[in-house]
Simulated assay, not measured.
Amino acid sequence: MRLVIFDVDGTLVDSQADILAAMAEAFAAVGERAPARADVLGIVGLSLDVAMQRLAPAADHGRMVAAYKDAYVALRAQTGAAQSSPLYPGAQEMLERLGAEPDVLLGVATGKSRRGLDKLLEAHGLDGVFVTQQVADFHPSKPNPSMLYQAMAEVGASKAQTVMIGDTSFDMEMAAAAGVPGFGVSWGYHPVKALHAAHTVADDFAALETALARHWRVGV
């Protein structure tokens, strides 16, 4: 058995437009100016409460989180999750190929809420693809390894059978903390130089599949 766990935002889907817009609303709700784009994308992957604390240490974080969630839902309702958070080119085909392998299980470990992930999977027709789904509602924020421990426990996978795929330093640090290889992707929200804890970094989905195949064949 092989367990492949994916981050979502910046790895499988490009949701930065809605993230930036919702964050602007969150800051407006507390009378603050929104931070720069790079600063906002730098906290993607963290749970919202932790992200707000980093971006605005002295603000009313509860109010900001509520405003962000309301804005995100409204933005998604305007265009639909499939358009507001589109899959990166090649993502769906890669998931289909991996999912067709009889000894591969797919999972998700995301800073999204349960509601947010459900809406996204439904919009992209990915219901039933991920056998284990870990969300921010029930875990400490990344890079705490809680999500990965729970995912492995749910499917009975060992650390040697598991990999984590993500675009941020938080994903790679979470993988390292859990004792599993972290496979970084270069097309997401953190620069490649921030993925120093990664086992390897792929530049596209084809390269990612090749790296996974090599990893399973050779081991670490």
Rank of each mutant, 00 (worst) to 15 (best):
R2W: 06
R2M: 05
R2D: 02
L3V: 03
V4N: 06
V4C: 05
V4D: 05
I5G: 04
V8T: 14
L12V: 12
L12R: 07
D14Q: 07
A17F: 02
D18E: 15
I19K: 03
L20R: 04
A21V: 00
A24Q: 03
A24W: 05
E25K: 06
A26G: 10
A26V: 09
A26C: 03
A28I: 03
V30E: 13
V30H: 06
E32Y: 10
R33A: 13
A34P: 03
P35W: 00
R37N: 07
D39Y: 01
D39R: 09
L41H: 00
G42E: 12
I43W: 01
V50T: 08
V50L: 09
M52I: 06
R54F: 01
A58G: 13
D60E: 15
V65S: 07
A66N: 14
A66S: 15
Y68P: 01
K69W: 04
K69R: 15
A71G: 11
A71R: 15
A71P: 04
Y72E: 13
Y72C: 13
V73H: 15
R76F: 05
Q78R: 15
A82H: 08
Q83H: 14
L87D: 10
Y88K: 01
P89N: 13
P89L: 12
G90K: 02
A91S: 04
M94P: 00
L95G: 02
L95C: 01
E96F: 07
E96M: 11
G99F: 10
A100I: 03
A100W: 06
D103C: 02
L105C: 07
G107T: 04
V108D: 04
G111F: 01
R114K: 09
G116R: 08
L117H: 09
L117K: 10
D118T: 14
D118N: 14
L120M: 14
L121Q: 01
L121I: 04
V129M: 14
F130W: 04
T132K: 01
Q133K: 10
Q133D: 06
A136G: 05
F138R: 06
H139V: 00
P143M: 02
P145L: 00
S146K: 11
M147L: 11
L148F: 01
Q150S: 02
A151L: 10
M152N: 06
M152P: 05
M152K: 10
A153T: 13
E154N: 13
V155E: 01
G156P: 11
A157N: 11
A157D: 09
A160R: 11
Q161E: 15
T162N: 01
T162S: 12
M164G: 07
I165E: 09
I165S: 04
G166W: 09
T168P: 00
T168Y: 00
S169N: 06
S169H: 09
E173W: 08
G179A: 12
G179I: 00
F183Y: 13
G184T: 03
V185Q: 12
V185S: 07
W187R: 07
W187I: 12
G188C: 08
K193D: 14
A198L: 03
H199K: 07
T200D: 15
T200I: 08
T200M: 13
D203Y: 11
D203T: 09
D204K: 02
F205T: 02
F205S: 02
A207F: 05
E209N: 05
T210Q: 14
A211T: 10
A211I: 04
A213Q: 13
R214F: 06
R217Y: 10
G219N: 13
V220K: 11
V220R: 15
